[in-house]
Design a binder for these strands. Structure first.
Length: 463
RNA sequence: GGCCCUAUCGUCUAUCGGUUAGGACGAAGCCUUCUCAAGGCUUAAAGCCGGGUUCGAUUCCCGGUAGGGUCACCA
């Protein structure tokens, strides 16, 4: 009874054990997220172990990428291991297994077709049915007979995944192995090894796979984007974490927007989905926007600034007006990378400097009076004069106040014409925030100045 | 093909035997100041099939079917 209790109170230890053979992407790091959430939920420890026993495919840059991404996602690990550094221990275990008669060296022709005879190590399979209780799926039984005497090392100095993973997890005290569904078929092999080594078998939890649009396992080939791609595009790490958790997990409520801390609070392996889920980038966009709304004004501004070019930020009027246009930007972006697109499309510059546009743009107001004659310079000039007059009377520069002053005149003259004229004069664009917002951003002096510019441009057109 | 896993709107999901099967994204429509957004409202949209168990199954069991995973001297 006592031993049972201590067993239950044993500190939870989980690990993320990627092989550094590619960039971290949505299909691969989700196991890290769930392992992390589970460990933190139970006040446990989260380990990062780089599984670099495959010398040919492992690359230092991928290892760096993994560490980099985890840090960006704010998933700090309590311990770090590099599997290759445990080589002496692996060799020791291999020798023990062989001397115990539980594994043997087998002289075989190399699989690469070179014809070389190599001495590989095979595990002596007891050929029996292995069963375990998966924390997500319940009992799973698999007959290991058809696995044969599987290979556990290329030679005494080069252990393979099955051996290394079991030895390391046991040595590092991992209590819960949370990994992808695709590992279910490996689990019986691992359990066999645990038993041969007389180690305690940990609890397994096999996560459903993240799927691509065609419902097959998400992979780089299937269009999985690297975590760094999302970072570069200006997604928030909190949104990525929230999204990747919500596909495959639901706390039973209708809440969808969670911070990392909230996720830790509500996380529960038993509420993890069993079936695979499609990674839907459109919903990620929505979620990211929601997370942007959660940002403090300062944080939001800093993010915005980091996505603007120096050229833009160096415009003389930048400092003066940046704060005023922040709300407008927030409304229009879904991720911070959109700011670069806005700048490229020239949708930002006019806030800080005189807009550049063809005089004819002003005349386009004719589009607003269907079936009527085209607008002419003669029609428009008085409108601009009147607008100047109205604006000089505005006392408070808020969108609401601006509207209160301008609206009656727009009603009288035709909304389309007046508002289009105002908006294009202020922005030089066919699309922009509404004119009242623009007026409130620019203030009296600048608004009138821009109306004068429009008037000048009008004169350049021959009636 | 063997073995294993899975199965509710297009997508992500709620439901722990009794519900008008709920929500979200997306879509469509409407409203809200001209454009672009944002916002609000409305609508369409699901229990794979067949057997059981039960007074009653989306839910439990079995069998199909379908999809996926895995079958390396990769991890």
């Amino acid at each position: 009874m006592n031993t049972e209790r201590t067993e239950q109170q044993k500190k939870v230890v989980t690990r993320f054990a990627p092989s550094p053979t590619g960039f971290l992407h949505s299909g691969t790091y989700r196991t890290a997220v769930f392992s992390y959430l589970f460990a933190k939920k139970h006040g446990g420890e989260f380990i990062l172990r780089i599984e670099d026993t495959d010398k040919e495919r492992s690359k230092k840059e991928y290892e760096e990428n993994i560490i980099d991404c985890l840090s960006w996602l704010n998933m700090s690990y309590d311990k770090f291991y590099r599997q290759s550094e445990n080589a002496p221990r692996h060799k020791e275990i291999l020798e023990k297994l062989i001397s115990d008669g539980k594994a043997y060296i087998s002289k075989e022709e190399a699989k690469d077709g070179s014809g070389v005879i190599k001495e590989i190590v095979r595990f002596k399979n007891p050929n029996r049915i292995v069963s375990f209780v998966d924390a997500i799926r319940g009992e799973i039984k698999i007959d290991t007979t058809d696995l044969g005497d599987f290979v556990i090392a290329k030679n005494l100095n080069e252990p393979l995944f099955h051996l290394a993973v079991v030895v390391d997890d046991a040595d590092e005290g991992v209590t819960h192995i949370i990994r992808g569904d695709d590992h279910i078929s490996n689990t019986p092999r691992h359990i066999l090894l645990y038993e041969a080594l007389d180690f305690n078998v940990p609890t397994y939890a096999h996560l459903p796979l993240v799927l691509s649009e065609d419902r097959t396992k998400l992979s780089k080939r299937k269009g999985a984007q690297a975590v760094t791609y999302y970072r570069d595009q200006g997604y928030l790490p909190g949104a990525i974490l929230n999204f990747i958790t919500m596909i495959g997990f639901n706390d039973g409520t209708e809440k969808e927007i969670f911070t990392l801390d909230e996720l830790i609070q509500v996380f529960d392996l038993e509420k993890v989905q069993k079936g695979g889920a499609v990674f839907n980038p459109v919903k990620l966009d929505w979620l990211n926007k929601e997370h942007i709304k959660l940002l403090s004004d300062v944080d939001f501004k800093n993010h915005v600034l980091s996505y603007m070019s120096d050229e833009l930020k160096n415009i003389a009027g930048f400092e003066k007006r940046i704060d005023a246009i922040l709300p407008t930007i927030k409304e229009r972006i879904v991720k911070f990378g959109d700011i670069r697109d806005m700048e490229t499309a020239g949708e930002l510059q006019y806030f800080f400097m005189d807009p550049s546009y063809e005089p004819a743009l002003l005349l386009c107001a004719e589009k607003q009076r269907k079936g009527k004659e085209s607008m002419t310079v003669k029609d428009l000039a008085p409108i601009y004069e009147k607008l100047k007059e109205i604006i000089s009377g505005i006392t408070e520069f808020t969108p609401e106040s601006a509207k209160a002053f301008i609206w009656p005149y727009a009603e009288e003259q035709g909304r389309g014409i007046v508002l289009w004229a105002l908006r294009t004069a202020l922005s030089g664009k066919e699309r922009s925030p509404d004119p009242f917002t623009l007026v409130s951003i620019f203030g009296k002096e600048e608004t009138i100045r821009r109306l004068d510019i429009a008037l000048q441009k009008l004169n350049e057109i021959n009636p």
